[in-house]
Measured scan of single mutants.
Amino acid sequence: NKASVVANQLIPINTALTLIMMKAEVVTPMGIPAEEIPKLVGMQVNRAVPLGTTLMPDMVKNYE
């Protein structure tokens, strides 16, 4: 099973992601793959992301 990106803390709306906000975890359903973490740094979330939430592509602005 591949790990996904999971919020390590509450991430407020429009916050630019940093490494300490994210962790890799095997979850179902899968979200953004953990190997994308370096690419996510500096990208903004378009909603508040609660602690423990799996990051999905539609939660990150301009994620492709």
Results as ranks from 00 to 15, higher is better:
residue 30 M to D: 15
residue 56 M to E: 08
residue 64 E to K: 15
residue 48 A to G: 07
residue 38 P to V: 03
residue 11 I to P: 00
residue 32 I to A: 02
residue 30 M to K: 02
residue 52 G to P: 01
residue 29 P to Y: 07
residue 47 R to H: 14
residue 2 K to I: 15
residue 31 G to I: 02
residue 51 L to V: 14
residue 59 M to H: 09
residue 53 T to D: 09
residue 40 L to N: 01
residue 17 L to H: 00
residue 10 L to E: 12
residue 61 K to I: 09
residue 63 Y to I: 03
residue 1 N to L: 14
residue 9 Q to F: 09
residue 9 Q to W: 04
residue 29 P to Q: 15
residue 18 T to M: 04
residue 12 P to I: 12
residue 1 N to K: 06
residue 22 M to S: 01
residue 14 N to R: 07
residue 49 V to T: 10
residue 38 P to M: 02
residue 1 N to A: 15
residue 58 D to T: 09
residue 52 G to M: 05
residue 39 K to F: 07
residue 42 G to K: 07
residue 64 E to N: 04
residue 42 G to M: 05
residue 49 V to H: 02
residue 55 L to W: 00
residue 63 Y to H: 03
residue 31 G to Q: 02
residue 8 N to W: 08
residue 29 P to G: 13
residue 16 A to H: 06
residue 20 I to E: 14
residue 61 K to N: 07
residue 5 V to S: 06
residue 45 V to R: 01
residue 11 I to Y: 01
residue 34 A to H: 12
residue 8 N to V: 09
residue 54 T to Q: 04
residue 8 N to Q: 05
residue 25 E to D: 13
residue 37 I to A: 05
residue 10 L to N: 04
residue 16 A to P: 10
residue 13 I to H: 03
residue 60 V to E: 00
residue 6 V to S: 05
residue 60 V to K: 01
residue 53 T to C: 07
residue 14 N to K: 05
residue 45 V to L: 13
residue 7 A to W: 00
residue 22 M to D: 01
residue 30 M to S: 12
residue 60 V to W: 03
residue 45 V to I: 03
residue 47 R to T: 09
residue 14 N to H: 09
residue 52 G to T: 04
residue 2 K to Y: 15
residue 41 V to M: 08
residue 23 K to C: 14
residue 20 I to A: 03
residue 29 P to N: 14
residue 52 G to A: 06
residue 26 V to H: 09
residue 40 L to Q: 01
residue 24 A to Q: 10
residue 55 L to T: 00
residue 26 V to T: 02
residue 21 M to T: 11
residue 24 A to V: 09
residue 28 T to K: 02
residue 19 L to N: 10
residue 30 M to A: 06
residue 34 A to V: 10
residue 37 I to K: 05
residue 19 L to F: 04
residue 12 P to C: 15
residue 27 V to F: 10
residue 18 T to A: 11
residue 20 I to Y: 08
residue 23 K to V: 10
residue 7 A to I: 04
residue 32 I to S: 01
residue 58 D to W: 03
residue 16 A to S: 12
residue 3 A to L: 11
residue 13 I to P: 09
residue 58 D to K: 09
residue 62 N to T: 06
residue 20 I to R: 07
residue 64 E to I: 14
residue 13 I to K: 10
residue 42 G to C: 13
residue 43 M to C: 08
residue 23 K to A: 08
residue 7 A to F: 01
residue 3 A to K: 04
residue 55 L to E: 00
residue 64 E to L: 09
residue 36 E to K: 10
residue 8 N to S: 09
residue 59 M to T: 12
residue 39 K to L: 05
residue 14 N to P: 02
residue 51 L to K: 07
residue 25 E to K: 04
residue 31 G to V: 03
residue 62 N to C: 15
residue 28 T to I: 05
residue 48 A to W: 10
residue 14 N to E: 08
residue 58 D to S: 10
residue 61 K to R: 07
residue 18 T to D: 07
residue 4 S to W: 02
residue 41 V to E: 07
residue 34 A to W: 13
residue 16 A to K: 08
residue 8 N to H: 14
residue 24 A to P: 06
residue 62 N to Y: 09
residue 11 I to K: 00
residue 45 V to D: 01
residue 10 L to F: 10
residue 34 A to L: 03
residue 18 T to F: 06
residue 27 V to C: 13
residue 29 P to T: 14
residue 58 D to C: 15
residue 4 S to M: 02
residue 40 L to I: 05
residue 42 G to R: 07
residue 11 I to M: 04
residue 40 L to W: 02
residue 32 I to M: 05
residue 4 S to G: 13
residue 7 A to N: 02
residue 21 M to E: 04
residue 64 E to Y: 02
residue 53 T to K: 13
residue 50 P to Y: 11
residue 12 P to F: 03
residue 42 G to F: 06
residue 57 P to C: 15
residue 7 A to T: 13
residue 51 L to H: 08
residue 41 V to I: 12
residue 11 I to S: 01
residue 38 P to S: 09
residue 7 A to V: 08
residue 63 Y to K: 03
residue 54 T to D: 00
residue 4 S to H: 02
residue 41 V to L: 06
residue 18 T to I: 05
residue 51 L to A: 08
residue 59 M to A: 08
residue 34 A to D: 13
residue 1 N to P: 15
residue 50 P to D: 10
residue 46 N to T: 07
residue 47 R to P: 03
residue 44 Q to E: 08
residue 32 I to L: 06
residue 25 E to S: 09
residue 39 K to Q: 08
residue 5 V to F: 01
residue 41 V to W: 05
residue 46 N to K: 12
residue 21 M to L: 10
residue 54 T to S: 09
residue 47 R to I: 11
residue 16 A to N: 07
residue 9 Q to D: 06
residue 1 N to Y: 14
residue 15 T to W: 08
residue 13 I to L: 12
residue 46 N to M: 13
residue 21 M to P: 01
residue 35 E to P: 12
residue 26 V to L: 11
residue 40 L to T: 02
residue 31 G to S: 03
residue 26 V to M: 15
residue 12 P to K: 04
residue 19 L to V: 07
residue 61 K to G: 12
residue 21 M to W: 04
residue 47 R to S: 11
residue 43 M to T: 09
residue 37 I to M: 13
residue 41 V to T: 08
residue 26 V to R: 02
residue 10 L to D: 11
residue 29 P to M: 06
residue 6 V to K: 08
residue 29 P to F: 03
residue 8 N to F: 14
residue 60 V to C: 06
residue 54 T to A: 08
residue 38 P to E: 05
residue 40 L to S: 01
residue 31 G to P: 00
residue 40 L to P: 00
residue 40 L to Y: 02
residue 5 V to M: 02
residue 60 V to D: 01
residue 29 P to I: 12
residue 7 A to H: 01
residue 50 P to V: 05
residue 34 A to S: 13
residue 44 Q to N: 06
residue 62 N to W: 03
residue 3 A to E: 14
residue 19 L to T: 08
residue 22 M to G: 01
residue 46 N to C: 15
residue 60 V to Q: 00
residue 29 P to H: 14
residue 33 P to L: 10
residue 32 I to T: 02
residue 21 M to Q: 05
residue 17 L to M: 11
residue 5 V to A: 15
residue 6 V to R: 06
residue 35 E to F: 03
residue 59 M to W: 11
residue 63 Y to W: 13
residue 35 E to K: 03
residue 37 I to C: 07
residue 16 A to L: 07
residue 2 K to T: 15
residue 25 E to C: 11
residue 24 A to G: 14
residue 43 M to Q: 10
residue 25 E to T: 09
residue 64 E to P: 14
residue 5 V to Y: 01
residue 63 Y to G: 03
residue 57 P to F: 06
residue 42 G to A: 09
residue 40 L to K: 00
residue 11 I to L: 10
residue 9 Q to L: 06
residue 39 K to P: 13
residue 50 P to C: 14
residue 63 Y to A: 02
residue 23 K to D: 11
residue 20 I to G: 06
residue 20 I to V: 12
residue 62 N to E: 12
residue 28 T to E: 15
residue 48 A to P: 05
residue 47 R to W: 04
residue 53 T to L: 14
residue 27 V to Y: 03
residue 61 K to T: 12
residue 11 I to C: 04
residue 55 L to M: 11
residue 32 I to Y: 03
residue 47 R to Q: 08
residue 2 K to F: 15
residue 2 K to N: 15
residue 38 P to L: 04
residue 56 M to A: 07
residue 22 M to V: 13
residue 21 M to C: 05
residue 61 K to W: 11
residue 4 S to R: 02
residue 41 V to A: 11
residue 60 V to P: 01
residue 49 V to Y: 02
residue 40 L to M: 06
residue 15 T to Q: 05
residue 1 N to I: 13
residue 51 L to F: 10
residue 7 A to K: 01
residue 33 P to R: 05
residue 40 L to E: 00
residue 23 K to R: 14
residue 14 N to S: 10
residue 29 P to S: 10
residue 5 V to I: 14
residue 52 G to H: 10
